[in-house]
Simulated scan of single mutants.
Amino acid sequence: MTYKDVSIIAVNGKAPRIDPSAFIAPGCRIIGDVTIGPDVSIWYNCVLRADVSRIVVGARSNIQDGSIVHCDGPMPHRPEGFPTLIGEDVLVGHMAMVHGCTLADRAFVGLKATVMNGCRIGSDAMLAAGALLTENKEIPSRELWAGAPARRVRDIDEGQAAGMQLGVQHYVLNGRMHKAAVEG
């Protein structure tokens, strides 16, 4: 498959693996040991750089415009490094920074939020727009955290969790529409 105006680069003998159903928007840079699952959408001008560890993006997840996803390599205190593992049905808002962390299925990272090494965001949990989740913090399932540094604000109720999943469905359909337009 060819992608218009997209850089897909192998590094250290590891090339990105992209499911054919995924939408990779023009302007993206996908580098190294990156796995992108079915119906994923990587929006305009995102960078996913796995040159020192790996990045996995699970089915139906989306990385919105201008976001950066990276990882960290082995260190004396952490020989396995910090891969970035993004589950299924995850929303990552515009211009987010996601680095060496785990986003469980159905997690939400808000616009311009930052998630640092060793962090974990649980299922149906949300890091609010502009928040900073400092190293090795965990947001439990169904909690909303905000601020810099981020702190617990409240629980996520059923309606909010359902709303996040509507967002996922929207991005799957919108990704298909953009994919068709780009492939023309």
Rank of each mutant, 00 (worst) to 15 (best):
P140W: 09
P149W: 00
Q169C: 09
G13K: 14
T134I: 14
A125W: 00
L173R: 14
R151D: 03
D65T: 10
G184L: 05
N45Q: 15
V168I: 12
S41P: 02
H170R: 12
S7I: 15
I36D: 02
G58S: 07
D39N: 13
S67A: 15
K179D: 09
V109N: 08
Y3H: 13
I8E: 07
P26S: 13
A180R: 13
G100K: 00
E143W: 12
H178P: 06
K4P: 08
V92Y: 04
R151F: 08
K14C: 14
L111G: 01
I55P: 00
K179S: 09
A25M: 03
D157P: 12
D155N: 09
E88T: 15
S123N: 14
A146S: 05
G118H: 14
S7N: 05
V115C: 06
A162N: 04
M116G: 03
S53F: 13
P149H: 00
A96K: 03
S141Y: 04
D19C: 11
M177R: 08
V47Y: 00
I68T: 12
F23R: 08
E183T: 12
L48S: 04
D89N: 15
R49S: 00
L133H: 07
A128H: 05
H94N: 07
A148Y: 04
I68K: 09
H99M: 11
V40T: 07
R54M: 10
I36V: 13
A25Y: 15
P20Q: 04
L85R: 14
A150F: 02
R49T: 04
I9C: 01
R151Y: 05
N136I: 00
S41K: 02
T114L: 14
D72Q: 13
I156A: 02
G175D: 01
M177N: 03
V40I: 06
M177C: 04
V40L: 06
V56M: 02
R154H: 07
I18L: 00
C101V: 01
E80M: 05
A180G: 04
E158A: 15
L91R: 02
L91I: 10
D65E: 14
R154N: 06
V153A: 06
A128R: 06
G159S: 11
E183K: 11
A131P: 11
L103E: 03
A162C: 07
M126C: 04
I42C: 04
W43T: 07
R17A: 13
N62S: 12
E88S: 08
I9S: 01
P38C: 02
R29K: 10
M164W: 10
G87H: 10
A15S: 15
G184R: 14
V47L: 09
V47S: 05
A107S: 03
